[in-house]
Structure formats: C-alpha cells, structure tokens
Amino acid sequence: MAFPEAPPIRLILDAHTHCGYTVPYEDLAAEWKLGGIDGGVVFSPVEEIYDRYDPFFTDSQEYALKRRRVHEYLLKSASDTIFPYFFVWNDFPRIPDGFFGIKWHRHADEPVYAYGTPSCDRTIEEICEKRLPIVLEEEFQNTLSFIRKIDGRTIVIIPHLGHLNGGYFKLKKAGVFENQHVWVDTALAAEWEIGDFVSTYGSERIMFGSDYPFGTPSRERRKIDSLFSGTDLKAILGGNLLRLLGNKAENFCRA
C-alpha cells in the first residue's frame, strides 16, 4: 500500500484521544487549545463500549445502547479537524459511514473478542475493504495473530509504542515494526522508545498521540517537541496522520 509524501504541515493533530458522554468533547477541546493542537482522532472511552471490569461480560441492552449513543455523539462531533474512529465490539455491526478508522481494544483481564466467528471475520473483511486504519490494543499473541490476519490490507496502529501490546522491545524483537503496514502512536510512551523507533525505522510511521484523558495533550506534545525538529517533527505532529487518512483529509493535504 503506497502513500504520498507528507505535505507541509498546517495543523497539529492528536492521533489518540478518548471522547464521549463520560469524556465530553468540550473538555478535550480545552486541553487541545492549551497545547496548541488543532484537532485529531477521537474514539469512545472503554466504559461506554463494554464492562471492562467483568472478564466474563458478553453483552447487554444497556451497553448496546451506550455504544450506539457514543458513536452517534462522535459523528456529531466530526468536523474539518475531528476524525472519529469506530470502536468495534463483539456485536460486530456494519461500520457506519463517517468514521475515519477503527479502535480495537482489550487488556489481558478484560472480556475477549470472539475471534474466529463468522461475524468477527466479516467485520475484519469490511474494515480491510474500506482501508480503515485500526488502532489495535491487545495482548501480545493476539496482536501478532491479528496483524497476520490483516496481512497488509490496511494499516494497523500500535498505540503507546506497544506498552499494552506486550511491550516495545518484545514487539521489536518479534519483527512487528519491520512490517511497513504497522504504524505506532506516541501516547504515554517513553522518550527513549520514541527515539529508538525513529532512529531504527524512520519517522514515516509514527504519530503524536496523547491518550487524553489519561495523558495531557500539552505535556505529550512537549515531549515530541523536545525530541525532534524539522521534517521529522512535522511528520509526527500531523503530517503522518493526514497522509494516513488520505482522501478523507485531502483538504488539509494541499500545500
């Protein structure tokens, strides 16, 4: 999958934030303003998708309603600089129009995805057909299996440089980052991890992220500003995200 070169940056964009009824957009926007950030990716807080504290949780009408409401909320929040991502869960619905990417998320002590089921496979095929980038936060072995299943048909983004996918160096040792269809975001990652990634793989597949409200956008941006300059800084702070989104953000890719 080929991408054009990053355009001159006119926007600073955050590639990893949570937003919904429990984390209102107004609060996020205020934090972005403090950090001189123009917008970015928004996806639902976990608590509006499933019960993360019940490892045996399957589903309920309450959570089905929460998911529908928060995704409608995100679509209403969309603008020229706000890019909503759809948070996939085990109901595996069709992906509504208007979403720029996918959030696929669970931790080791949380309810599991129904991998291998026809509905899961159908959703993955739809995501790949639409070339929607996937922010994948999963256990280590599930991360490896998922990337193999995607097989380069769309971009997989490892958040936090892999901190919650088994760890940065464990993924690096496994060769995950050598895959040109695997990108990363910097949200809450250590400076040495960020620096090692760029020195090893370049700055074309790494994006600034804050993980708001768990991270502070202005503080996370200062971390990137302290590490890079010139074309690397421009790419990480916004150019790579615009390049990733392609036609959906074409108005901001013009010089």
Score class of each variant (00 low, 15 high):
A2H: 14
A2T: 14
A2L: 12
P7L: 01
I9Y: 03
I12H: 05
H16V: 08
H18D: 05
H18Q: 14
H18W: 10
Y21G: 01
Y21W: 10
T22I: 12
T22Q: 11
T22H: 07
V23H: 13
V23G: 01
Y25A: 10
Y25T: 05
W32F: 15
W32I: 04
W32Q: 04
G35K: 10
G36Y: 14
I37L: 04
D38S: 08
D38I: 05
G40C: 06
F43S: 02
I49P: 00
D51C: 11
Y53W: 12
D54S: 10
P55R: 05
F56W: 11
F56A: 13
T58P: 00
Q61I: 11
E62P: 01
Y63L: 06
L65Q: 15
L75Q: 09
S77F: 02
T81V: 13
F92H: 14
P96I: 12
G98W: 13
F99E: 04
F99H: 01
F100H: 14
G101Y: 03
I102P: 00
K103S: 09
H105C: 07
H105G: 04
R106A: 09
H107G: 03
H107D: 07
A108F: 12
E110A: 09
P111K: 13
P111R: 12
Y113L: 03
Y115D: 07
G116S: 09
T117I: 08
S119C: 03
D121Q: 15
D121V: 13
I124T: 10
E126Q: 14
I127L: 09
E129W: 11
E129G: 05
E129P: 01
K130P: 04
L132I: 11
I134G: 03
L136E: 04
L136G: 03
E138A: 09
N142T: 15
N142I: 11
S145H: 13
S145F: 12
I147D: 05
R148P: 00
K149A: 10
I150M: 00
D151C: 09
G152H: 07
T154V: 08
I157S: 04
P159R: 01
P159M: 06
L161R: 06
G162V: 11
N165H: 06
N165T: 09
G167Y: 09
K170A: 15
A174T: 01
V176E: 00
F177D: 04
V182C: 07
W183T: 04
V184L: 03
A189L: 11
W192L: 08
E193I: 02
T200C: 12
R205A: 07
F208K: 00
Y212K: 08
T216I: 14
P217E: 00
S218C: 09
I224A: 05
S226N: 14
T231M: 08
G238S: 09
G238H: 08
N240H: 06
N240M: 03
L244H: 02
L244A: 02
G246K: 05
N247T: 12
A249E: 01
